[in-house]
Nucleic acid binder design. Structure first.
Lengths: 268, 268
DNA sequence: CATTATTGTTCCGAAATTCGGAATTGCATT
DNA sequence: AATGCAATTCCGAATTTCGGAACAATAATG
């Protein structure tokens, strides 16, 4: 009778829950994770672990390593992501420019884009490997906290903005605010200054600045951002940083527009 | 023959089969696929489609678009891939060099690496978007056909090679051979010439050439390859191409070794 | 503004699946 | 040979899924 009420319990792992746990583990130790490892690390009976792994393999999410005694990720998984995220060509197009910023400033910078009403990271470049985990392609940037999201949302029509604000806005640190009025005032400030900030609203010690990337037709679908330790980002050289971002942003806008046109031409 | 559903039936979709079908569909129309679409396209009852979609959402593989009336891919999916394929830093490191080749030769080129006994694409750059589908990161290169796989496998110890040859070797075109003896002679030829070829063995009209990337310690874990239409790749300028690949390969070897060292240092 | 289509969601019994303990096979080491 | 360990198969009990039908919510229409 251990089954509690669980009517429409949102917190339940769902049918795929354990499969995902295993998959996550496989991803953590690709090509080196054995059945026994899964069994003991997740405290699952050997039989169950075995069935889950085989299920993943059959689904194409995982595959057995050549030795046969280990598992790693399946092709289907990577294919799914790369097929969907057409940020692929976008990365090719913009990486050099982002790298230029790194050389000049030594800070992590990234390009975000509006996708399905959300702002997600499209391309990111960092001088330090340890930043990789922070801004990964595909990660969503909340409107009420991230500079890059503010920079984009400040230039959307009312409907898009309203939808975004209707979503639950996360509270991450003590500096995060999630009341609609505040967000709107923040966006107004962005429109006045021409750039957006995130001051300890996602991580206490970190700050980010972002500028909108305005396409030739006047639309803003992307933002270019730079992030790093709060003191270093928000120091007296801030105006210079903004100028640099704006300059690169203008270049990117042209490249993006051209890229979209070429891509469209090929999609017949 | 106990029952109709045979016990170890390899062709069965498995428990995740229908989930994957739905996920595939979501990936095909990200942010625009509605419940009804899934239901009718996969000929599933509305109820079933609904349950599958919710399951995917709960697992983090999909998520509802902001409007609430559509679905797109979840963050977890992209995160899994990007976290696993630590080709992430590798891409950062090598993309510029690959792009240089594109500028010089106008052909698709890519870097493969040995991962868990298989050769998989790590980074790929192409002048033409339409090539994207061909060589995508994560895709496996068969030892008996792909130039990049031959280039790597030619320099592995006997055990590794034996394991690779023990795998089922795919026949893709009329030019594909999959007998072990032939593969070994092909690898011997690679060691003599210093480069590997794939002449219509994966696609009738396409060819590829690849050189091993020899790391400072003498190990070969990567290959650098160029691919394109058969007549264009295998023409009289072939020696020049090989030279170009070798030159870039030497550069990459240093960069890779350094990158690995840095990465190792940070993993404490 | 009322009405009608359309789409998304909940309910629930029947059916099929998973669950995991125990026994078996296969592989590598001593 | 013999042993130890990991992977796999077997199978009854229990939980889950399956999908038709009713229901609710939203968009389209008169």
């Amino acid at each position: 009778m251990t089954t509690d009420t669980t009517t429409t319990d949102d917190a339940s792992p769902g049918p795929l829950g354990r499969y995902m746990d295993v998959l996550e583990l496989v991803a953590a130790f690709p090509g080196a994770l054995t059945l026994g490892d899964v069994s003991s690390m997740l405290a699952l009976p050997k039989t169950t672990a075995h069935r889950l792994l085989k299920g993943l393999v059959k689904a194409g999410l995982a595959r057995e390593a050549v030795g046969g005694r280990a598992y790693d990720l399946g092709e289907r998984l990577t294919r799914l992501v790369h097929a969907t995220v057409d940020d692929d060509w976008l990365a090719t197009l913009t990486s050099p420019h982002l790298r230029q910023i790194i050389e000049d400033w030594g800070e992590t910078c990234y390009l975000t884009r509006l996708a399905g009403g959300r702002v997600v990271v499209a391309v990111s470049q960092s001088p330090d490997v340890r930043w990789r985990g922070y801004v990964q392609p595909g990660i969503e940037m909340p409107v009420n906290a991230a500079a890059s999201a503010k920079a984009i949302m400040a230039y959307q029509d009312h409907a898009t903005l309203a939808q975004a604000l209707a979503q639950p806005l996360p509270i991450v640190t003590a500096n995060t605010r999630n009341d609609t009025a505040w967000v709107e005032s923040e966006l107004e400030a962005v429109r006045e200054r021409g750039y957006a900030t995130c001051i300890g609203e996602i991580d206490e010690g970190l700050a980010a600045i972002a500028v909108p990337v305005t396409l030739p037709d006047g639309m803003v679908l992307h933002a270019l951002a730079m992030t790093g330790p709060l003191q270093r980002i928000m120091n007296e050289r801030l105006p210079e940083r903004i100028d640099a971002l704006n300059a690169t942003g203008a270049t990117l806008a042209k490249a993006l527009a051209l890229g979209a046109k070429i891509r469209e031409r090929g999609a017949n």
